[in-house]
Design a protein around this nucleic acid. Structure first.
Length: 920
RNA sequence: GCGGAUGUGGCGUAAUUGGUAGCCGCGCCAGACUUAGGAUCUGGUGCCGAAAGGCGUGGGGGUUCGAGUCCCUUCAUCCGCACCA
């Protein structure tokens, strides 16, 4: 009889559930530790082996921290709103809540089978009204706040209205859209609609008309991070630009703080860098250029104001508001055409045409603010409407794009910074002395930048400015399966519902499609209006709404009166360890930081950054298998014989392949097309080819954790996932390696049992040798867990068990701490062994062992003795030997003579405890 | 183009501060037990070589008594951003 993992795992999973072993409460006597997993979207396909990788790592860490005396919050929930359920609803007519519920149930079963230590009493689901009540609540707060740049925090819009009544908006420095200056008197004269209109430009959640990423196929608008290369990330449908009225979140107000906060958090460099790029801070200045024969001036943003004397023309984006106004009669038609062509292009087309130079002269001229010269104004696609001011001063001498443009249109190129040959190519570097630049001549670039900004500000024609690439987040989706906005319209003016009306529940609809007039699905709902009959907003919120504060909600998941109680948030504070995929770098992880900062400003949370440390688990790739079909036949040739034939590789289900040998019968049954397949075998076997690719249904390389658990048990699966390699690294899944870990589990079991599988624990004191093995393992495993190096910890356990097996160790003194340590990684067998040792309570409540420093140091050291850096022999010496003793022993060792060849060594290096190197 | 990461046996990987390169596992080879093995156990396994020995961490160069680790350079792969002024 061997270890019966099926019964043991089932038994303890039942025990944990029944005893609520992992339930957690506020406990001021113990330090808190919050370990969070990115909650999953429960898709219909269920989990594959790649998904739980991060969950296993975080579970090990949670269990370890618990045994180290921390009060560990380790919750789980579901990101339950989303497109797939809705698409499915459109196809089948089934309510997305039904599919979602079904998928959640399946996820839960799968998760339970892996033996996680979640406190399920804190589960959240974003589609649950008791949860999204607080998503809506936060939206109302965002609507009712603006961002005060002077205090660098969110403040109530009601305060702002008071300021307007006192002194207009001249002294207000807020993050806002374009608002003309007005006085207190003018403010007081405005009617309600006009006032609301002005305030809307200040709100952190605001309604605005803009060009959006419209996906006709999905029938909705998408955020920038939901679009990749002109296609929707989900589904891969084309995305075009369209002007629409949308809700926005003013995340740009927080750009500076989002950037600064990165300095304080322990995230990977690559992830921080991605966020820095996404925020895209650049320092420079604005400069106004007057337009000849016009009142208007053109504001540009430049990071190189020092090169202003090199500006020989200007370029506006085709969408720039002044284009219409300044274009002369002679050029009107060409300009209109250019604008039209540019506007009709999709983002995708624009991107593929990056290399081609195009543009159109407007006929208008600007006046250079320093030289007074006339410079022509062009429009061109390479200037983006959404960045900076949508207009540039073109400096062909020192900007490669402007250079290409100037050459194409035969415009003058002036060198203003020494270095390089600007006739050939632009000199973009910021090193060199200024020339042809009036008052700046002779200055270094950096000095010149400071000087010119001073001059611009003095003359009132520009000022130093920090610009960001980050855009405000579009918050409306024309979808059904999402949070309804707590918003109604009174004479076309949007107002938020009172908090007491929350949650505003998602209404039933007859179909999940837009209406015939193109309105979102909510417009189909009957009586979608307030008690007073005002129409409610028909858009719903995007996916990131519900995931932006779920980690806060876990702290106090059942609270119906508050998002989170002050007591709970004061105790749990923030997430100590967050584990999840890096694909959320510019989506969830930036929105959540923004959302959290806002909640911090209004006093709901205590920490400005929500996730102290973040670990990105690497993707588990699939290992695909191939069979080779001889073209035009139904005959398949084995891998090593295929060169003799003209073949086509076909993906074959990895589950009917074992160690690259194909199960022929299973293959014939797998697909009717192959039912009469013929094979050309080698050594009587069909050998498949293989390749590493993404784990995907279409490649038939998906490995399901359920099957592995059925065959090897959850503990083996957990250990193997960790054993594969570093958590953060992408690595291929190869099922065959799991056997080794399975053997280890059984070997561990046998340490506690005799040949007849009877429990065999000796109460005798352990030998020093046995204790040394144990304590070295404690030291190694503790260090590895702290460093999130779980793969090396597993291998340390293997070494430990191998060595103890060799000594036939059965001492309680050794086996008990070992059971405790292993229980983080393999909780079921850990729990079973713990109980075999006579304990009644869960091993989760035990303490992680400490190591004894004396037992981890050896009293003899094996010195490798090398000659000229090459190791030649080994020498065992007491660890307290002096340098001289080691040197003498090394040189007088019998093996040394051979390498010394009678010569005297030039130099002998002895590193105590490490190495001896003899130089000859 | 810019930024980030990674290159070590047939495969996944290890080597915490510059100090024995290849731990642990898979695979492979040999053996034991067995009617049998895709079970279990034991031993071997970086490459070349009979051995002595030599070579070896993507390539080239450097620093050092000593380099997988540090520096320069180059190549390859992956990821992110991309006409960002």
């Amino acid at each position: 009889m061997e270890y019966n993992f099926r019964d043991v795992e089932k038994k303890w999973q039942g025990f944990w559930k029944e005893n609520k072993t992992y339930r957690v409460f506020i406990d001021h006597d113990r330090p808190k530790y919050y370990v969070l997993d990115m909650f999953p979207y429960p898709s219909g396909a269920g989990l594959h082996v790649g998904h739980p990788l991060g969950y296993i790592a975080s579970d090990i860490f949670s269990r370890y921290k618990r045994q180290k005396g921390f009060n560990v919050l380790h919750p789980m929930g579901y990101d339950a709103y989303g497109l797939p359920a809705e698409q499915y609803a459109i196809q089948t007519g089934q309510h997305p809540a039904v599919t979602t519920e079904k998928n959640i149930k399946r996820y839960r079963e799968q998760l339970d089978r892996i033996g996680f230590s979640y406190d399920w009493d804190r589960e959240v689901r974003t589609c649950d009204p008791s949860y999204y009540k607080w998503t809506q609540w936060t939206f109302i707060k965002l609507f009712n706040h603006y961002y005060n740049n002077k205090t660098a925090r969110a403040e109530p819009v009601s305060d702002l209205a008071k300021i307007f009544g006192r002194s207009g908006n001249v002294d207000v420095d807020a993050a806002c859209g374009f608002v003309p200056e007005f006085t207190a008197v003018e403010w007081l004269k405005m009617d309600e609609g006009e006032k609301q209109d002005v305030l809307m430009h200040y709100r952190l959640a605001y309604l605005s008309d803009t060009l959006v990423n419209w996906c006709p196929r999905l029938g909705t608008v998408l955020a920038n991070d939901e679009v990749r290369e002109g296609f929707s990330v989900r589904g891969g449908h084309p995305v075009v630009r369209k002007k629409m009225k949308q809700w926005f979140l003013r995340i740009t107000a927080y750009a500076e703080r989002l950037l600064a906060g990165l300095e304080e958090i322990d995230w990977s460099d690559s992830l921080k860098e991605i966020q820095r790029n996404w925020i895209g801070r650049s320092e420079g200045s604005t400069i106004f250029f007057g337009v000849k024969h016009h009142q208007e001036s053109i504001e540009v943003f430049t990071t190189r104001p020092d090169t202003v004397f090199g500006a020989t023309f200007m370029v506006l984006s085709p969408e720039h508001e002044l284009v219409e106004k300044i274009t002369t009669e002679a050029y009107r038609q060409q300009v209109a055409e250019y604008v039209k062509v540019a506007g009709s292009k999709s983002d995708r087309e624009r991107m593929t045409e990056v290399k081609t130079v195009s543009g159109q002269f407007t006929g208008a001229f600007a006046v250079h603010p320093f030289s007074g010269q006339d410079i022509p104004i062009y429009i061109a696609e390479y200037v983006l409407a959404g960045y900076g001011t949508g207009a540039i001063m073109a400096v062909p001498g020192h900007d490669s794009r402007d250079h290409a443009f100037a050459r194409h249109f035969g415009l003058p190129i002036v060198q203003v910074v020494s270095g390089g040959d600007v006739a050939e190519e632009s000199y973009d570097a910021t090193e060199g002395k200024m020339m042809n630049s009036g008052f700046m001549d002779g200055m270094e670039v950096k000095e010149a930048i400071r000087a010119v900004i001073r001059k611009l500000e003095f003359k009132g024609i520009g000022q130093g400015k920090v610009n960001f690439r980050l855009r405000d987040a579009i918050f409306s989706r024309q979808r059904y399966w999402g949070e309804p906005f707590p918003v109604y319209y009174k004479e076309g003016v949007p107002y938020v519902l009172p908090e007491s009306d929350l949650p505003l529940e998602l209404p039933p609809v007859d179909k999940y499609l837009p209406t015939e007039t193109g309105e979102p699905p909510l417009a189909r709902a009957k009586k979608w209006q307030t008690k007073d009959g005002y129409p409610l907003e028909c858009n719903t919120m995007p996916g990131f709404a519900g995931s932006s504060a779920y980690y806060i909600r876990y702290m106090d998941a059942a609270n119906n009166n508050q998002l989170v109680s002050d007591e709970a948030v004061s105790y749990w504070q923030d997430v100590d360890l967050y584990v999840g995929g890096s694909e959320h770098a510019t989506g969830h992880l930036i929105y959540a930081r923004f959302w959290n900062k806002f909640l911090y400003d209004i006093g709901v949370v205590k920490k400005e950054e929500p996730f102290k440390k973040l670990i990105n688990q690497g993707m588990i790739q699939g290992r695909s298998n191939f069979v080779y079909r001889v073209k035009g036949t139904n005959t398949f040739v084995s891998l090593n014989l295929k060169e003799a034939y003209d073949t086509m590789p076909i993906h074959v289900d990895v589950n009917i392949v074992d160690k690259d040998v194909l199960d022929l019968e299973a293959f014939r049954k797998w697909n009717p097309e192959f039912s009469d397949a013929e094979f050309i075998l080698e050594d009587g076997k069909y050998i498949c080819g293989w390749e590493i690719e993404k784990m995907s249904k279409s490649f038939h390389n998906v490995v399901n954790p359920d099957d592995l658990i059925e065959k090897y048990g959850a503990d083996t699966l957990r250990l193997y996932e960790m054993f594969l390699g570093p958590v953060e690294q992408a690595k291929p899944w190869d099922t065959k390696g799991i056997e080794g870990v399975f053997r280890f589990i059984r070997k561990l079991w046998r340490l506690y049992h005799d040949r007849g599988n009877n429990v065999h624990i000796s109460e005798e004191p352990a030998s020093e040798k046995e204790l040394k093995i144990l304590h070295k393992t404690i030291q190694k495993v503790s260090g590895d867990i702290e460093r999130f190096s779980f793969n090396t910890a597993v291998s340390a356990f293997m070494v430990c068990v191998n060595e103890l097996t060799e000594l036939q160790c059965s001492k309680r003194e050794v086996l008990e701490p070992l059971a405790v340590m292993i229980s983080s990684f393999a909780p079921h067998i850990g729990e079973e062994l713990w109980h075999i040792l006579g304990h009644k309570e869960s091993v989760a409540l035990s303490s992680f062992p400490d190591w004894d420093e004396k037992l981890v140091t050896d009293d003899v050291v094996v010195y490798p003795v090398s000659f000229n850096g090459k190791t030649r022999f080994k020498l065992e010496l007491p660890s307290n030997s002096s340098k001289e003793e080691v040197e003498r022993a090394a040189l007088s060792a019998p093996e040394a003579a051979k390498w010394l060849q009678g010569k005297d060594p030039k130099k002998v290096i002895v590193v105590p405890g490490k190495i001896v190197n003899v130089v000859i």
